[in-house]
Design a protein around this nucleic acid. Structure first.
Lengths: 158, 158
DNA sequence: TTGTGTGCAAACGGTTTGCATCTCC
DNA sequence: GGAGATGCAAACCGTTTGCACACAA
């Protein structure tokens, strides 16, 4: 899993993507590039669902199918470009993958769904260690802290 | 969130459940009891989906609807009896809730889906701290380490 | 007796798939 | 030219909901 996030210019992403795809006999397409562009441009701490990415593409005037979005997301997760997040709901979110040493985790309000990120290298260290002890090959650590945010605590007290 | 898991006899679960339900004006039903019994009896480290619990009930000859299973599971999660797990797939799993100090986490093979549990109190400590710092009220910490198990590593090498 | 809980079936929402068509290499 | 990629629509699957009936308190 590489350190794409350190590439200084957006062009570099496309080139790395192209190289990785070619190596597998796969192709760069405008759809794949545009999806990557959308995820590259969102502010840190935001995550998008497949549906949100799809809507974003439609707003740009793209003629694209939702199935293409799903297929591209899965592919880029496989390639290590994207990280798939479960969070707390019935759908999945995507963000650019970071090198392990910079990976962050999520504090999710189970009532309103708001998400805060935090970084804590110990988490990844523990995950790495547990995986190694059992001969597993680590792919991703997901630490979700489910809680009630201050606002929802007040509201639930009626 | 109580320490039901320390109750020595299965009867005690039902009594605690009854008390908690009564306090809210809710009722103990045979369906709710049986679902709790199923989850109580599975070996440590196993988790069941709603569908699996439903099938289990059908095999026992129960005439029950899948919607009842879902409603009972949600209720018992609310009451703190059960913990809902996301793991890596498109469905949710359930297990008896443990006190925070005994909570365990999951090492999941993203290929074959096998799950190993491990305990690491630091995880819960970090989650507690992050929540408190932001005024959140902690409900549950879920740490999922996604990886390839030894068997699947070999198979993917062709 | 009354409001909570149930089973059924239909609806729902996110995701996947089959297929004819298109397009990148 | 041909394998890979797309868009569409239908299928899929886990979950939720509306409703008439059943049952615990």
């Amino acid at each position: 899993m590489g350190n794409y996030s350190r590439q200084p210019h957006s062009v570099a992403y496309s080139e790395v993507l192209r190289a990785l795809l070619n190596k597998r006999g796969l192709r760069i397409t405008s759809q794949r590039q545009k999806i990557l562009d959308i995820l590259k441009d969102i502010p840190a701490g935001e995550h998008l669902s497949a549906e949100e990415i799809y809507q974003n593409l439609l707003e740009q005037g793209e003629n694209v199918g939702i199935s293409t979005v799903y297929r591209a997301l899965h592919l880029m997760v496989d390639l290590g470009f994207l990280r798939e997040l479960g969070l707390a709901e019935g759908k999945r979110y995507y963000e650019l993958n970071q090198p392990f040493t910079e990976q962050h985790h999520h504090l999710v309000c189970i009532q309103c769904g708001s998400v805060q990120e935090f970084q804590e290298d110990l988490i990844t260290q523990i995950g790495t260690q547990e995986a190694e002890e059992r001969g597993f090959s680590l792919m991703n650590c997901q630490f979700s802290v489910l809680a009630l945010c201050p606002v929802c605590q007040v509201e639930l007290d009626n």
